[in-house]
Simulated assay, not measured.
Amino acid sequence: MFEFKQSVSTSTKIILGIIAWLAFVLIWQLAASADNPLFPAPDQVIHALWTLFTERDFAFDVLSSLQRILISFAIAVAIALPIGVLMGSFPLIEAMFNPLVSAFRYLPAPAFIPLLLMWLGTGDTQKIALLILGVIWFLITLICDATKQTPNDFIESSKTLGGSRRIIVWTVILPASLPSIIDACRQMLAVSWTYLVIAEIVAATDGIGAMIMRARRFVHVDEIMAGILIIGLLGLLCDLAFRGLHWVMFPYLRRR
């Protein structure tokens, strides 16, 4: 039954995923059976979620958070993509930028919050900047590594046919590394969601993180867990969107 690197059908994946979720909810329900207000049961969290959407305008908070995530991640990709591709294509460029990128990769993004507040104020710009700092350095590294995986035979063949550096990067290296770049973006978007609450706990009036902090102030644990649940669901939907994009853009990988 258990074999290394065995192929699993789509229906089996769906069934096993449903079983895993049902087991998680069952364990959660059993653990919350003592009626502890600090650890509400799943039905209490669902009820809190319904109340948030119907009575507290939680949909506006969700849209605000989603907008911040999408804008910040689009900016991070727009910056990281050309830098990462050039670093992966030309060793001289990598030698120049890699020490800087590697150093910033180890700096925690929340440490920049005081500086961002002084430089950018308390508005959306500060929150978007924090979300960008949380992913851009890792994204550059992942895109660089993906670009390096382009087979040398492709590059040498393009040189033989008279391709210039610009043409080789644009028509050979980028298309060859694009599937791995899409996967890297999918992974880093998940990281961006993990920084959302941190970005929205400082001087925020809207967003999922702001709602969670308001709920913490009044010890509404069910609302806190509802907010966490929504972040997880939105993250899952974003992950499925990237998987679907990968599936549509690269049909030859499916056949392989």
Rank of each mutant, 00 (worst) to 15 (best):
S180W: 08
K159E: 11
I201E: 10
V101T: 06
L131R: 00
Y252R: 12
L49R: 02
A32K: 09
I113A: 04
I14W: 14
V191E: 09
I143F: 01
A20G: 11
N98V: 06
E55Q: 15
K13D: 04
V202A: 13
V219N: 14
W247V: 10
S164N: 09
T194R: 13
L240S: 08
F97I: 13
K127N: 07
L130D: 05
A59Q: 06
A95F: 12
L133F: 13
D35Y: 11
S158K: 04
L120M: 15
L253G: 04
S102M: 14
R217E: 15
G207F: 01
S11E: 14
L196H: 02
V85T: 15
G17H: 05
A190G: 15
F138R: 07
W193V: 01
I143H: 01
V221C: 03
R216S: 12
F97E: 00
F90Y: 13
R214L: 13
T51I: 13
S9F: 09
I128G: 00
K148V: 06
D43W: 14
F53R: 03
A210T: 03
G244Q: 06
Y252A: 14
P91Q: 11
D239P: 03
L63G: 07
S180R: 14
L86Q: 14
C144N: 13
S164G: 15
V191K: 01
L81S: 05
M87E: 01
I231K: 01
Q187R: 11
V221F: 12
C144I: 09
L52R: 00
D153P: 00
